[in-house]
Design a binder for these strands. Structure first.
Lengths: 220, 220
DNA sequence: TGTACATCAGTGAACGCGCGTTCACTGATGTAC
DNA sequence: TGTACATCAGTGAACGCGCGTTCACTGATGTAC
């Protein structure tokens, strides 16, 4: 029940302490990745970072502050990367099906290339960091924006609502897939999710790509 | 990294100890529900149960055993309830769309009526209880079985794969919805998920119900 | 019905351990004159 | 260039607390004769 905080730390004034801070952050993320949330201990962190307990408390008010700070850094970074991913494709050139296909691929790729500590922070996120909420919200909002460019091809009555729900479906199926035991190969997943979403938004005729053979040429 | 165990406890031989065991289980679930996973402490459990520490250790080998035991009971019970839910509707009377609609409704209802401790056990399930896996697997398998009764109306090439993925999509979107801030009303969620899944499986013409007006009469 | 005994069940003080945190202290860095 | 001083940074032993677990003990229940 630790409320969401602005994650304020005592700012370093010398390069020496700035480097120490970085080492502490790196050690923390590494510990999260290898040992999980329960493995994150002040003593272990500072040992791994080659620092000391007192040094830690000169920077952070306590352990909660470290977690807030980590969450903020990590999710902000994830969001930035997401923005970069979204900026790459030339969305204006695509019809609805291709737009959906590209979006779906980005979502799946992003989930697949997640670092281990992101997984842990995503899982153990009862602490509800503001940056986490912002990441989740903005990710969907940006995707929805892009899909809404093809609004004229969407047959659902409430297009905005349909786009939001459809995107949640894709994110959800990928998440569900990750927790499952028998996973589908990535290309199948992309193809089927595209059919699912394009069919839902665009109705008949959008469910399938026009050519099954060169369907994946763009993605190698 | 506590491996999945058969959750064997020292079986009670008298009614007295059987009742004590029940009180301990009840207190544990109540604590999980109100305080979350971190609130589950042996001392707190036995206090709430009106028992004692030694009494607890006469039954369980340790805390891990309690968690295994709880998981097994809770997920087995959840699965039984799910089987009962699935047995109620007369699936043979339904066309594909209605089958999907009914299935979707059941999934959403089940998620909505989850008790608080189930939520916590679902979240904090890194301990990977076998009963948990069985619940997830069997739930989807049974649903898939039902949908495969309408196999002839499924246009997707690999029908089994499509059903599995489609169901994961529904479960995923409901899960995603639950974690989200702006939730859709339940009837909208049912309608849209039905359209999503029916459209995906059945292609054109299955995406919408034949009558928008009496669509929900069955569900009040 | 009564007594002796074995087993089951329950009690709560006590222990050890690991954790988050404090604190008295030393060393490094920057600035003023 | 050198000295004095303030501030920043770092150290690690020590503390208190809550947790899971142990253990010596008392009481309840069932059975044999």
């Amino acid at each position: 029940m630790t409320g969401p905080k602005p994650a304020q730390i005592k700012t370093p004034k010398q390069n020496r302490s700035r480097r120490t801070l970085e080492r502490i952050v790196d050690a923390s993320l590494e510990l999260l990745a290898t040992e999980g949330a329960e493995g994150l201990t002040i003593h272990r962190v500072v040992e791994k970072a080659g620092s000391s307990v007192g040094s830690f408390y000169a920077r952070f008010k306590g352990k909660d502050d470290l977690l807030d700070y980590l969450a903020e850094r990590v999710w902000t970074q994830a969001l930035e990367r997401w923005h970069a991913d979204l900026a790459a494709p030339d969305w204006d050139e695509m019809d609805l099906t291709r737009t959906v296909e590209t979006a779906v691929t980005l979502v799946i790729e992003a989930q697949r290339s997640r670092s281990a500590y992101l997984e842990v922070l995503d899982q153990a996120n009862s602490s509800r960091a503001p940056a986490y909420e912002q990441f989740r919200t903005e990710r969907l909002a940006r995707l929805a924006e892009i899909l809404m460019k093809r609004r004229d091809d969407i047959v659902r009555e409430d297009a905005e609502q349909a786009v939001r729900l459809g995107l949640r479906a894709v994110v959800g199926v990928v998440d569900e897939e990750r927790r499952s035991s028998d996973r589908l190969p990535q290309d199948v997943l992309v193809r089927e999710c595209t059919a699912l979403l394009a069919g839902y938004l665009g109705g008949a005729g959008s469910g399938e790509s026009d050519s099954g053979v060169e369907f994946f040429d763009v993605w190698g």
